[in-house]
């Protein structure tokens, strides 16, 4: 019964490893692959796994994330029964880290009210396809107390367990000085049967600017692209009603992902181009990530750069970064020509 899972997405991460890409948005709302935000992947995985009740725990600075999620309609989560729940911090207490006893205590009503038998807990910054129904089957088959999802041996900090176990651990250990449930499990491993579910398909964790750049570029590889974007388990996102992308005379595009609504007259190679980007005549863009609505005027040369949303690069500007250290252009800025 697919309804028997409750989805929990941890979107509280506030890392300072993204330079100013996360100055105006949470990591969960970071644009990815030209038309998505990071959270779309786990949110869509849950929906595609038949989960109809998803709770997202956010950190501070949620404007762009809330704008993106809306009422959950794009994921079919605008429902009378179940649906999308967003829990924002109230700023009153200090120890609110996700999964901490304090955090759980504050939101315990949500767990008590829900009727699902199992809980899936995951992070908002994981890219890839995970079928949680298969993880649940494995969990039940192996008779595990807790199933941890791993990829190439690396933990994805993604777990399935029975809600009753979560609640009983909470009751049992809340006053014993543990910080979080995960600490309890790790310290008392012999008490639990913990199984690992290995995801063989493409998975990436986006936890730094370098990883963001590297894994964005992974999407240009056929295997990764086809494992992440499948017909049967589509990644849903907020739709923008952009027209198709227009290639004009002079456009020369190679090995790139291009979203809708773009107008291309220049040269583009090894790039991720988001929706409604304009690229002028004679411009050459390589190894770069260009976010939504950015305009690059004629004859610019851009290599190894991440350009945030709504940026204007005036004619003839040259910007260079490297794969290891991509140059980042902040949202809404203008790069003046000479």
């Amino acid at each position: 019964m697919p309804q028997s899972m409750l989805g929990i997405i941890n979107a509280t991460h506030e890392l300072d490893t993204f330079q100013n890409l996360t100055a105006h948005r949470s990591i969960a709302a970071l644009p990815f692959a030209g038309r998505y935000r990071l959270i779309d992947f786990m949110l869509s995985n849950m929906v595609n796994s038949g989960i109809t009740s998803v709770a997202i725990f956010t950190g501070h600075g949620v404007r762009s994330l809330m704008d993106h999620l809306g009422c959950g309609k794009q994921w079919d989560l605008d429902r009378k029964r179940d649906g999308l729940f967003v829990f924002t911090p109230d700023g009153k207490s200090k120890n609110e880290e996700f999964g901490s006893f304090a955090h759980l205590a504050k939101n315990i009503t949500f767990f008590l009210r829900s009727r699902q038998k199992y809980v899936v807990i995951t992070n908002s910054n994981i890219i890839g396809t995970i079928n949680f129904s298969s993880v649940l089957d494995y969990h039940i088959e192996t008779d595990a107390n807790i199933t941890e999802v791993v990829h190439n041996g690396e933990s994805l900090q993604t777990y399935i367990l029975e809600k009753e176990l979560l609640l009983s651990l909470f009751e049992q250990y809340k006053d014993q000085g543990y910080y979080s449930i995960i600490d309890v499990i790790n310290e008392r491993l012999d008490h639990f049967k913990v199984e690992k579910y290995d995801c063989k398909e493409y998975i990436a964790i986006i936890d730094s600017l370098n990883h963001y750049y590297k894994h964005s570029m992974d999407m240009l590889q056929s295997t990764a692209y086809h494992q992440v974007f499948t017909k049967n388990e589509p990644i849903f996102t907020k739709v923008k009603d952009e027209p198709p992308t227009r290639y004009k005379t002079g456009a020369k595009v190679s090995n790139s992902l291009i979203a809708n609504g773009c107008m291309i007259q220049g040269e583009v190679e090894n790039c991720i181009i988001s929706r409604a980007v304009k690229i002028g005549k004679g411009a050459v863009i390589r190894n770069s990530i260009i976010m939504q609505k950015t305009q690059i005027e004629d004859n610019c040369v851009i290599d190894g750069v991440i350009i945030d949303k709504d940026v204007k690069i005036e004619s003839g500007v040259k910007l260079t970064g490297t794969r290891e250290n991509p140059y980042v252009v902040e949202k809404g800025t203008v790069q003046k020509g000479s």
């Binding site: 692209y225 009603d241 004009k248 595009v253």
Partner: peptide, 27 residues
């Protein structure tokens, strides 16, 4: 805006062997 039912497909992928001019291409 001309609105339509969005097909919700990933961005278009243009390979190194492709050549495109004067065209409209959708997701």
């Amino acid at each position: 805006r001309i609105y339509s039912v969005n097909p919700n497909q990933p961005p278009q992928y243009i390979s190194p062997t492709a050549q495109i001019e004067e065209s409209l291409i959708n997701e």
